[in-house]
């Protein structure tokens, strides 16, 4: 299993009250799965995503990613795992505004010590893969929303991560462009990537192969889609 989560808890201490965002979650995800995590706001889906993405650690329980016990790691170790294993795609793209597309895609490579020349080469190839070979030297404000999200996808892919973790990737796009991005994910999935999609839109979730629904910090359903 690529992801093995057992009895996961996340409790936020708000002083007088303690709020459990995750209340005993068990889930396993295999390599090359295409999973959507769904749930209304407050269901704990963001918390689960943050923990899967190694941005946060659980209060209790176990998270094993690619045979590494991530649940017991500290800050800088998590940073290294994120760099190697996770590719993030955010709703708001989160590109560096002053850097061109190429440099934005290079970013994860900077932090694992790839040489400058090698970085340019890999980033270029990856941008071509998402269909932006002719937009490499444009800055984000010179790109359309769809193109920006493609740059972000290229950035997520550039380090060959184990998981692509997409948080509402179409939330800031019109429906036609959103469809295009979902098609890109479809292609990536077919190429062998593992994709985890966090969304509250049924239409978007239906693109995946498996939907996990959360409510009040617990998994309420976990089933395959018709795809």
């Amino acid at each position: 299993m690529l992801i093995d989560i057992k009895n996961l808890y996340k409790v936020y201490d708000l002083g007088e009250v303690q709020v459990a965002a995750l209340n005993g979650v068990d889930v396993s995800i295999a390599k090359n799965e295409y999973v959507a995590i769904m749930g209304p706001s407050g269901s704990g889906k963001s918390t689960l995503m943050n923990i899967i993405g190694c941005l946060d650690v659980p209060s209790d329980g176990e998270y094993i990613l690619n045979n590494k016990r991530v649940s017991e790691m500290v800050d800088d170790e998590l940073a290294e795992i994120r760099n190697k294993e996770i590719g993030f795609v955010f709703q708001t793209f989160n590109l560096l505004p002053r850097a061109n597309a190429l440099h934005n895609v290079e970013l994860p490579l900077i932090y694992n010590g790839t040489t400058r020349a090698k970085r340019k080469e890999i980033a270029k190839d990856t941008l071509e893969k998402v269909g932006l070979g002719n937009r490499m030297h444009h800055k984000p404000n010179e790109l359309s929303g769809g193109q920006r999200q493609r740059v972000a996808v290229a950035r997520a892919l550039v380090n060959n991560p184990s998981i692509i973790l997409a948080d509402e990737p179409t939330g800031n796009l019109d429906s036609k462009t959103g469809e295009e991005i979902m098609q890109l994910f479809e292609d990536l999935h077919k190429a062998g990537n593992t994709i985890i999609l966090v969304t509250h839109e049924e239409d978007i979730a239906r693109h995946s192969r498996r939907i996990i629904r959360l409510l009040d910090g617990k998994i309420v359903s976990d089933e395959a889609t018709k795809n």
């Binding site: 993405g53 941005l55 800050d75 800088d76 940073a79 290294e80 994120r82 760099n83 190697k84 993030f88 989160n94 560096l96 970013l107 994860p108 932090y111 694992n112 950035r155 380090n159």
Partner: peptide
């Protein structure tokens, strides 16, 4: 702040 968050998300350590 957002840039710092992003850099950390893609693997920047504290020292970076």
């Amino acid at each position: 702040t957002k840039e710092i968050g992003l850099r950390k998300a893609v693997g920047a350590k504290r020292i970076n």
